[in-house]
Write a protein that binds this DNA or RNA. Structure first.
Length: 274
DNA sequence: CGCGCTCCCTGGCCGC
DNA sequence: TGCGGCCAGGGAGCGC
């Protein structure tokens, strides 16, 4: 997906254009994505006014004045687009359209359908099955050396898989895990319990730094991801290792390598990372 | 029981 | 130009 910086960028874009607007009508063109849209979704959403847009992990949260919250997840290929052009007919893979007052339309489009749209009452949001198991937010004070060191000590899995585990720390996906590990000088396949306190300290700082830098750049656009206004992000131009197999390391000039961990490509510099 | 593998789905790209 | 194989930012579920 879209990892945390991309979701955060989408949230910021939505926030500018939809807060204070009433939802007139919802068009659910496909309900069966990763999980089905609740039967009462259209009923709960129609007529309500959007009061806030938030984010928890990679979930987009749209709060309404009737106590209902829309949860959106972009999966690998999802988009949440805001447009003022009334679409004559929906585009391919437009699954849900929200028609707001003032001629604004929010479109959830997701070719691969790994994403989802659902909703629940605000007062039970933190107990929602999709949210309750999630770990700490990486940009919060709760994500610190003590937290990650304790988790690392208790795990023998590769450190890259550890930081991508959404039950430990949320929002770090395949790209930013590789970039943060490069920045921290740590090999992605090191067993988590071999990472010493100083390395954890570096890693925590690098994860925060990489995510913040990416947010500033509007995220990374490789294929599908775009902001809510359709513009691309541009952090992909700042990748040190991701997608750079065979190219020279930006720091030392050695060849960037690729390996597969838990079925996913990992990029690293065998010289800069220990 | 913690972990890696496979699968969900579509589309783009590469090589033949 | 066409087609098969492979790959892709996520995550749940299932074996080992």
């Amino acid at each position: 997906m879209p990892e945390l910086p991309e979701v955060e960028t989408v949230c910021r874009g939505l926030r500018q254009h939809i807060i204070g607007r009433r939802i007139i009508e919802v068009d659910i063109r496909r309900s069966a994505m990763r999980i089905p849209i609740p039967d009462d979704f259209a009923e709960r959403v129609s007529g309500a006014t959007i009061t806030a847009v938030g984010r928890r992990a990679k979930y987009i949260l749209i709060y309404m004045d009737n106590g209902y919250v829309i949860l959106g997840h972009l999966g690998m290929s999802g988009k949440m687009l805001v447009t003022r052009d009334v679409p004559e007919e929906p585009a391919k893979h437009d699954h849900v359209l929200f028609f707001l007052e003032g001629g604004v339309t929010v479109i959830f489009n997701d070719p691969r359908r790994f994403g989802l749209i659902t909703g629940c009452s605000c007062d039970v949001l933190h107990e929602h099955p999709l949210l309750k198991m999630l770990g700490v937010e990486p940009l919060s004070a709760d994500f610190n050396v003590e937290h990650l060191f304790r988790k690392a000590q208790g795990s023998r899995k590769p450190v890259k898989n550890l930081i991508m585990d959404q039950a430990i720390v949320v929002g770090v996906g395949n790209i930013y895990a590789a970039e943060a590990l490069f920045s921290a000088g740590i090999l992605p396949d090191r067993s988590a319990n071999t990472i010493n306190n100083n390395e954890v300290k570096q890693l925590v700082a690098c994860i925060k730094c990489v995510l913040l830098s990416a947010i500033e750049s509007g995220g990374s656009t490789l294929r599908d991801y775009v902001r809510s206004d359709g513009r691309a992000g541009y952090f992909q131009h700042n990748f040190a290792v991701y997608g750079r197999e065979g190219k020279s390391c930006v720091r030392c000039g050695q060849v960037v390598r690729r390996m597969v961990q838990a079925g996913r490509s990992t990029f690293y510099c065998g010289s800069c990372q220990k």
